[in-house]
Each structure stands twice: as C-alpha cells, then as structure tokens.
C-alpha cells in the first residue's frame, strides 16, 4: 500500500466494520430472545428476519401447563421484600461506618466485605436442612432470608462509598444550626444520599430477580420463581424455544429498563460485587 490516504481510509473502514461486529456481538443474543418470543413454533427454527409475528407464546406461558403468572408474583414479592429489608439496614450501617469513628470500625467493615465472597452453596447447605425441618422449603420467606446473605454485604459496601462521597460540611452546618444527629440524618444526609440508595436498591433487585441457584434448591412448586419456572418450559423434544423466549422477555425486559437508570454506576456496582 503506497498511498497513505488510501491506507488511512482502509483503516477507518476496518474500524467501522469491527465496531459493527461489536454491536452484533453485544446485541444479537438479546435480539434473538426478542424475535424468538414473537415467532411460532416453526419460524423459531429459521433465521429469516421477516415472519408473521404472534403473541401466542405470551398467551401460552400464562396458561396451563406453564402458568408463569404465579411465578412472576413470587419473583416480584421475593425481590421487593429483599430490597425493602436489605437497603434500609445497609444504609444505616453504611452511614455509621462512613461517619463514625470507633474502635474496630475497619475490622467490622472488612468483615462485611469478606462475607460478600462467601459462595452461595455454603450458605445453602445448612439452610436447606434447617428449612426442611422448619417446613419453610417452597416458601417465599426462605428465599428472602438467603437473598439477604448476598444483597446486604454488597449494599453496605456500595452505600459506604456514597456516604463517603458526601461532603461532611453540609452535615456540620446542620449541627451548628442545632439539629441533633438523628434529625441531621433524616433531613440532610438521607435526602442527599438518596440517589445512591436508589442505585443500590436497583442492584439488589436485579440480583434477587435473576437469582437461580437458591431458588432451584429451596422451591418445589408453590414458590417457584421466574428463572426456575422458565427452565421447565419443555416439550417432548426438549425446550419449546419460542415459549421459553417469551418467558425470557418477562425476566429480561424489566432488568434492561432498570439497568438504563443505573448506567452510570454499573461499573462501580460490579466492582463491589453487586451482580455476579
């Protein structure tokens, strides 16, 4: 290649092609789920982009035998309850770790971080036996209890970062104006850190909503969650892909919408182990 201008243009062309390949790599599996959910049981096996779209799959998964309705309810109940317990507790603890100085503070914080890395399977073994004796297997409460084991530690870690990022001068001004600590916390600190609380709540919701391992072990029929429910969408010849994709859309779409809201914090959230 003698001509530098031509060479530069070829380079740019290659870059655009590579960028298109990245877009394809990132979006294609999502696009497949979206398209397959609208196809009938014949079209789902063809790669044609033009087909007669149908909502039959969505009708099918909400009726017998798949019956996804109750599973959506359990998933929502378990995820919201987990968030509603974990986030206020985490915010309170993170505030103390960020703002107070006391002996053993760093030890408490590092101990909380360490629990973030305890594998779920270790938590599952004793709880499985315990829930079996207590008759809690196949109840939403069993799931909420174990989901706290992975949402709470990460949320404390993440929220501590948000509290630390808040300048203390604002709170000091409130103290000077005569507020006590509880009033300052309620009227100054919490409102200011609210975006961080919401971001942590969304992360906790996503990880509970997507969770599979605990739900597989601890549920049988009544409290089956969405992820465990959709893997049972099979016919005589293996998975019924078009219905599975429709179920997949119900798992996926709320999460994709939510992740748009926490876009700016995504990398930060993953770094503290918010999602795995």
């Amino acid at each position: 290649m003698q001509n530098p201008a031509l060479r530069k243009r070829l380079g740019q062309g290659a870059e655009v092609l590579a960028t298109l390949a990245v877009i394809f790599f990132v979006l294609f599996p999502l696009a497949w789920i979206a398209l397959a959910s609208l196809k009938n049981e014949v079209d789902v096996y063809s790669t044609r982009l033009f087909f007669q779209p149908t909502l039959d799959n969505f009708r099918a998964i909400f009726s017998h035998p798949v019956n996804l309705g109750p599973k959506v309810w359990v998933s929502a109940l378990v995820s919201f309850t987990t968030v509603a317990i974990a986030i206020p507790l985490a915010a309170a603890a993170a505030y103390v770790i960020s703002r107070h100085r006391f002996r053993g503070r760093d030890l408490v914080f590092v101990a909380i971080l360490a629990t973030q890395f305890v594998p779920a399977v270790v938590v599952a073994i004793p709880f499985f036996a315990l829930f079996r004796s207590a008759g809690l297997i196949d109840t939403p409460w069993a799931l909420v209890i174990v989901y706290l084991s992975f949402t709470l530690p990460y949320a404390i870690w993440m929220l501590r970062g948000f509290f630390d990022a808040l300048p203390v001068e604002i709170e000091e001004a409130a103290y000077i104006d005569g507020c006590n600590e509880l009033q300052t916390l309620r009227y100054v600190t919490v409102p200011l850190v609210m975006p961080g609380i919401l971001v942590s709540a969304v992360f906790a919701f996503i990880s509970a909503w997507n969770e599979f391992f605990f739900a597989l072990i601890l549920t049988r029929s009544d409290s089956v969650t969405l992820p465990v429910g959709i893997q049972t969408i099979t016919g005589v010849r293996g998975p019924m892909w078009e219905q599975l994709a429709a179920g997949g859309m119900i798992v996926m779409v709320p999460i994709l919408v939510m992740s748009l809201f926490i876009r700016r914090y995504f990398v930060q959230g993953i770094t503290v182990g918010a999602l795995k």
Binding site: P29, L30, W32, I33, V251, L256
Partner: peptide
C-alpha cells in the same frame, strides 16, 4: 452494560 444485566439462565439458553 446490557449483556451483563441479563439473567445467567437466559445467557445459557440463548
């Protein structure tokens, strides 16, 4: 960010 947020079971199925 989108692929990461997708449930692992959907990653598996797709």
């Amino acid at each position: 960010i989108f692929p990461f947020a997708v449930a692992p079971i959907l990653k598996g199925f797709s």
